[in-house]
Amino acid sequence: MFLNRSEGFALALPAALFTCLVFLVPVGILLSAAFQAEPGVWSLQGYVDFFSQPLNQSVFLRTLKLGVLVAGTSAVIGYAAAFCIVNLPASSRGRIFGLVVLPLMISPVARTYAWIVILGRTGIVNDVIVGLGLSETPIRLLFTETAVFIGLLQLFLPLMIISLVSAMENIPQDVVPAARVLGASWFQVFFRVILPLTKEGLVIGGTLVFTGALTAYITPAILGGSKVLMLETLLYQKVNVSNDFVSASVIAMILIVMCFSANLVLKRIASVRS
């Protein structure tokens, strides 16, 4: 450690100053607008007005519901996939892990666009449904909550798998076989051994997926449209269609609070379990 503090501050200053000026100050002003239904008058009126509208209530609940569903589902799939990856021989492990990371590097526009091709009425899923005779005509899959759910799950599942893999790599190798030898069922192994040892990873992965699902714009915009609004798409509409900046700031604040609370709640759950 070096002791010349002024030199240290001088080195850190440009980055801190830059972030403050072009990021914290504008965002701060925007969020403070959420507490001023009229300029200069501080109040919570914006929130009262926002939640008094049935549409806004249902958009809020839908966003929360989809966030929880996506995070929950990706935890279930994530545990299965991560456990498999950790148990692979070292040679194929890196390659498979690379394939999991890969989608994260690809444009979300491309990733969401793919689902139009798959879920549309002329898409492959409908071809199968009609081909198998499950339905006479193609069914509507786009612009439904299901479509948004599938799109979000594909977008954020890799984050959960990555978090869980790195958590599981820290479990001593012989713990699981030992528990099995001692007569534990797979169910017991999971809840008594794996889960307690990986809850840190679950908290990180859960927060990343939930936050990601809440704040994704493209997926609900393309796969949900104006019928399946989420808070992000509603915010965009408030700005671009109705010029309602107070509501937009209120939604922004709600989103940030939801993201932070998700992290707190998950940490809380993790500490209760132990």
Binding site: R140, L142, F143, G225, S226, K227, V241
Partner: peptide
């Protein structure tokens, strides 16, 4: 429920 979406 019968309407696919509302376009802008």
């Amino acid at each position: 429920d019968d309407i696919v979406t509302f376009y802008s």
